[in-house]
Amino acid sequence: MTDAPILELTDVSAEYGPFRSLFGVSLTIRPGAAVALLGANGAGKTTVARVASGLVSASAGSVTVDGTDMTEARTYEFARAGVAHAPEGRSVFATFTVEENLTLSFRRALGRSRVKAGLEEAYSLFPRLGERRSQTAGTLSGGEQRMLSLSRVLVEKPRLLIADELSLGLAPIVVDEVYETLATIRGTGTALLIVEQHVQHALELCDDVALLDHGTIAWEGPASEAAEVVVTHLFDREGS
């Protein structure tokens, strides 16, 4: 049981309105594993992340979390099963203060008594957030909003952490720190699914890489072999 995959996508297809954005994607993440999801824009990375956290339902195939079939489950049931997802972009409640944003999530994930400790942890992770704890999140800079969105999932230490476009809009030094934190969390047994455009960090952190192209998995393998494949893929005119 302990070695059962935390997340298993089997032949998952997904649609966006009339358009199909995933074609039979299969992906397995074992407890404590770290998988990087790479690919060009529009390749379907974000959709995979969304299916994995229940935001988008698979139109075909199956999704299991911890061995339980969750194909039909609602988003909040994924969260309760231990999947935490920091979506791409400025995914914060814009009219909430920084503290309210974190509290909303910590109340359930950490329990009432540990909200305060969770807030302190988030602020020590990102001191900028601590300085702005009572500022409305909508008025934060793009980078600070990313920090807020990430600090939520970093503090909760879920069974599976999904981060979409992790480093987007963050200063390089902050990105370094986030990756250090991710490495620490990984040590405590959290599995990671990292979606990235800047690939270097992702390759250093993760052991496995899945490369998406036009809604299918084009390549899957260990991170050590990934660099060359990725370069050829993104710049394949030069590679050929």
Binding site: H198, V199, A227, E228, V230, V231, L234, F235, E238
Partner: peptide, 23 residues
């Protein structure tokens, strides 16, 4: 411009790209 090192860095970070010398 596409061969410019800064452009490749922007997309790939400071990744050591194996075939860079061959370009």
């Amino acid at each position: 411009t596409l061969q410019h090192p800064a452009v490749r860095t922007a997309y790939l970070g400071t990744l050591e790209v194996g075939d860079q010398e061959a370009m």
